[in-house]
């Protein structure tokens, strides 16, 4: 666990530096809080991609608490902000859902370039490592070489890949995959899908069909619909979460590419707006860098000194 913490901390170091350095700078610059202090606090949150409404909400909440609790020192206000963010994030924790018995089906969705196929490959290796019988379905039949990309991951993890030709109907791939996974007694089936912008009506209809077919073949499935979200994404992530949830009932978020300088603050907004939990975070390129999201840890790392 210590290693995990260190790794996550390392991955999030930039996040922390950006956000906390500025807050530290801010609180040490101000002995006592004033309007200017709160304006700057709001700006810092905005820069973390937390979003206007969430930033305003957080700042207001802290401002009100400071007033009612008669707290004037900047340092104490900072602690308050950490508490507020933690309280939002703690409710944001949820483990991966597994079928009560038999096959668990996970559908991976998201916009182009979010990291769906990579996430799926890492998940396959991880589940396989846990001794599960894993199968992959190459449901991205659109992008050139997406099927080959998934096959490479399948080979690396040593798990079978169900595929059709490029251009095939992804719902047909999903159908075959569920049938095959059931027949072969798999524990988990991970279904990849083509990247699609959430506003493309036809493509969203296509993924709804994939979802319907899975449900028809196995009534309890899909057990997880994971939306892969690039941590560098700004406020559009909220639109992504909203429209994908409307279409296929997203059950959780995978936040990728947190090892850059991106802050991923938008997950706070998503939790606020939609109540969607973050289930996994990607903090690096290695297979083990895809981790369960731990809200307390995330907040701790964000606020550790």
């Amino acid at each position: 666990m210590a290693g995990l913490f260190a790794r996550l901390k390392e991955g999030l170091a930039k996040t922390r530096e950006n956000l906390m350095d500025k807050i530290t700078e801010l609180v040490t610059g101000h002995g006592e809080v004033d309007d200017d202090f709160f304006d700057q606090l709001e700006e810092i949150l905005l820069q973390a991609d937390i979003g206007v409404s969430t930033a305003v909400m957080l700042t207001d909440r802290v401002r009100r608490r400071a007033r009612s609790e008669k707290i004037r020192e900047a340092l104490a206000v900072r602690k308050m902000l950490k508490e507020e963010i933690t309280s939002i994030l703690v409710g944001n924790q949820a483990p991966i859902v597994w079928a009560d018995h038999g096959l668990t089906v996970m559908l991976i969705v998201g916009v182009n370039g979010a990291g769906k196929t990579t996430t799926l490959g890492k998940l396959a290796a991880r589940f396989k490592g846990e001794g599960k019988r894993v199968m992959l379905a190459a449901g991205d039949t659109f992008r050139a070489a997406a099927i080959e990309q998934l096959e490479t991951w399948g080979r690396r993890a040593g798990v079978p890949v169900i595929k059709h030709k490029e251009g095939a109907d992804p719902a047909a791939v999903a159908y075959d995959a569920v049938q095959s996974a059931l027949a072969r007694g798999m524990d988990v089936l991970l279904i990849d899908t083509a990247g699609r912008l959430q506003t493309k009506v036809n493509l969203m209809e296509e993924i709804k069909k994939v979802h319907r077919v899975i449900q028809r073949e196995l009534a309890t499935a899909p057990h997880e619909v994971l939306l892969v979200l690039d941590a560098t994404t700004g406020q559009n992530a909220i639109s992504q979460a909203k429209l994908f949830t409307q279409a296929v009932g997203v059950t959780g978020i995978v936040l990728t590419k947190l090892d850059g300088t991106a802050k991923g603050g938008v997950i706070i907004g998503i939790k606020q707006e939609l109540g969607l939990p973050v289930k996994l975070v990607g903090v690096g390129e290695r297979i083990e860098d895809l981790r369960d999201f731990d809200a307390t840890e995330f907040a701790d790392v964000l606020f550790s000194d």
């Binding site: 905005l46 820069q47 916009v111 690039d230 560098t232 700004g234 992530a237 850059g260 300088t261």
Partner: peptide
């Protein structure tokens, strides 16, 4: 650059 990039676009 992805047009959906947030505040981090500047750092990148």
């Amino acid at each position: 650059v992805d047009a959906m990039t947030g505040q981090d676009a500047v750092n990148v």
